[in-house]
Design a protein around this nucleic acid. Structure first.
Lengths: 220, 220
DNA sequence: CGCGGTCCGTCAGGCAGTTGTCAGGCGGGA
DNA sequence: TCCCGCCTGACAACTGCCTGACGGACCGCG
């Protein structure tokens, strides 16, 4: 899962990013409205945390421009004031959730997770993949009912695929969502990762559509 | 376990904090309603002791705001008067327990412990961890039935993990709950603590999920 | 006051799980 | 048959975690 943190205060921004990374997200950061708008328009995020008080271009305008351009990622709006008029404006502008500062990090993470989950049409944080089962809230996995050893990166790959509802996802897109925006990491790293998953959990966990990408075996 | 003590009288507040610390809690303090509200909104507490007569923002309002923002930690309300109308208001506002001043420190501590316990879905104050058994009321431990020597910090670490229901907890989060609010204390301190526990009670008491955190061996 | 004891944070060294890279192999489609 | 995309085993680097040792802080005791 890749998300964008938009917040002008560098300390708070770093806190937010760290908290989300701790929850298994890849977090990009933006400190002003224009970079935020650009990143959100160019990159492909699974969620955005958006502060309203921003230099150069305020948060609500950023949000409106994204929505006008058809960007549909879930956005959670932060505001310094617990002012309900701002909440209404935020929702009007296309926000999916609203959180007044100050807030607790755990709460924010929980809400972001909830948004991502709902965006994928899921209700619970548990993903069923046949013999394998992921608990995205508790960050645990079970294979045939027994707790399974799974590495953080493997977990995130499966989690991301599970959000794509059977759509084949290219190695490039996977890399983009598993690593940061920065590097065009070798597609082979993804291939190796998939190979390791198949070795652990059977060849069927991840299927290949030659020329299109990877997808999850749909649970029967 | 981390708790917040909200009380305007500095002496009483210090007494409360000391008593709770003696019972193994980490106690943060707040002297007026606004700081209280802020702390409770930003930090992650396992319990709150809340006096009603506060400067700047009265206790009931603080409590209502927390609840309106979805903060669900257990709150025990203190009041100067043994007035039953206040009790009703308190419970209405989302309090979990109510204590009229003057009260016994021991009684308060016992109730707070009870609330934390119930919050974790436990009934008794005894936690069973296989060969190791914790008595959270008396802060004692038994290993294979025999009384065991366990340090306060070790005890609190196990107690906290036991509250997390098998979820892996990162060293950072552990530090946050074992020490006070501010610091991102060295993760190595937690590692050392875990190492000491394993030396005393066997390598299995605490398990490691590389990249995720620590968790307790689930009792069979 | 000095002494031993316990508790616990810090440090440095080391091990092992994780992950990127490489080279070679396999197979489907043109 | 050739090409290209994908698979796989091996390997090396990295990083997270473990551990033993050390010393400071604190406490009870003689």
């Amino acid at each position: 899962m890749r998300c964008l943190v938009v917040e002008d205060d560098a300390d708070i921004r770093a806190d937010l990013a760290r908290a989300l990374q701790g929850a298994g997200f890849v977090a990009d950061e933006a400190g002003d409205g224009e970079t935020a708008w650009y990143r959100g328009d160019v990159e492909d995020y699974d969620a955005v945390v958006l502060d309203l008080g921003l230099p150069r271009l305020d948060g609500l305008s950023v949000l409106r421009r994204w929505r006008a351009n058809g960007r549909s990622f879930p956005v959670i709006v932060l505001s310094a004031r617990s002012d309900w008029t701002e909440k209404v404006e935020g929702i009007d502008a296309g926000a999916d959730d609203y959180l007044a500062k100050p807030f607790e990090m755990g709460e924010l993470v929980a809400r972001v997770r909830g948004l991502v989950r709902r965006g994928a049409g899921r209700v619970s944080g548990v993903v069923d993949l046949g013999r394998l089962r992921l608990d995205t809230t508790r960050m645990t996995a079970a294979f045939d009912g027994a707790p399974a050893r799974i590495s953080p990166l493997e977990f995130r790959l499966l989690d991301y695929l599970a959000h794509q509802g059977g759509r084949p996802v290219s190695a490039g897109e996977l890399a983009e969502h598993l690593y940061g925006a920065a590097d065009g990491a070798d597609a082979n790293a993804i291939e190796a990762l998939v190979a390791r998953l198949r070795r652990k959990f059977g060849a069927d966990v991840v299927q290949t559509r030659r020329g299109f990408g990877y997808l999850l075996a749909t649970p029967p």
